[in-house]
Amino acid sequence: MTDLPQWADLLISFFIVLGASFAFIGSLGLLRLPDFMARLHAPTKNTTLGVGGVVMGSMLYFSVTDAFSLHELLIAIFLFLTAPISAHLLAKAGLHLELELNENTKDLRKKPEQYTDKDS
């Protein structure tokens, strides 16, 4: 087992704890939020940041102990490209199915004329 310098140990720990915190908050949002659209928002934002933090910690660890590692960077790029696309497709499916929304969730479909760019 290799001994890490203290600065690397602290920096790696910071990124892993930060990533785990974001992932945990995203998971709580998925559990606690009232409807589909709100539940969709929490994991796409927070969990993406959470995985990003863990990947940064992993990149730092393997770069300090071995050679510079790009595997984790490829994982992060793939995640940051696919998470918004899948969230967009899920949101469009939810709109198409006209899923029931909570009364506190703003539904911009009720008065579309007030959200247009056209001058009346």
Rank of each mutant, 00 (worst) to 15 (best):
Met1Gly: 13
Thr2Val: 07
Pro5Arg: 14
Pro5Lys: 15
Gln6Arg: 14
Gln6Leu: 07
Gln6Tyr: 08
Trp7Pro: 05
Ala8Thr: 04
Leu10Pro: 00
Ser13Thr: 12
Ala20Pro: 01
Ala23Tyr: 01
Phe24Pro: 05
Gly26Ala: 11
Ser27Lys: 02
Ser27Ala: 13
Leu28Trp: 02
Gly29Ile: 02
Gly29Phe: 00
Asp35Arg: 04
Phe36Trp: 04
Met37Trp: 00
Arg39Lys: 13
Ala42Leu: 12
Pro43Cys: 05
Thr44Phe: 01
Thr47Phe: 03
Thr48Glu: 05
Thr48Lys: 10
Leu49Asn: 13
Leu49Cys: 15
Val54Tyr: 02
Gly57Trp: 01
Met59Ile: 10
Ser63Arg: 02
Val64Ala: 15
Val64Ile: 09
Ala67Leu: 12
Ala67Tyr: 09
Phe68Lys: 13
Ser69His: 09
His71Ser: 09
Leu73Lys: 00
Ile75Cys: 09
Ile77Gly: 13
Ile77Thr: 14
Leu79Asn: 05
Leu79Gln: 03
Phe80Thr: 08
Phe80Trp: 13
Ala83Asn: 07
Pro84Trp: 05
Ala91Asn: 07
Ala91Phe: 05
Lys92Trp: 02
Ala93Val: 04
Gly94Tyr: 04
His96Ile: 03
Leu97His: 13
Glu98Cys: 07
Glu100Pro: 04
Asn102Ser: 13
Asp107Pro: 05
Lys110Pro: 03
Lys110Ala: 10
Lys111Asn: 13
Lys111Phe: 04
Pro112Val: 12
Gln114Lys: 15
Thr116Pro: 02
Ser120Pro: 15
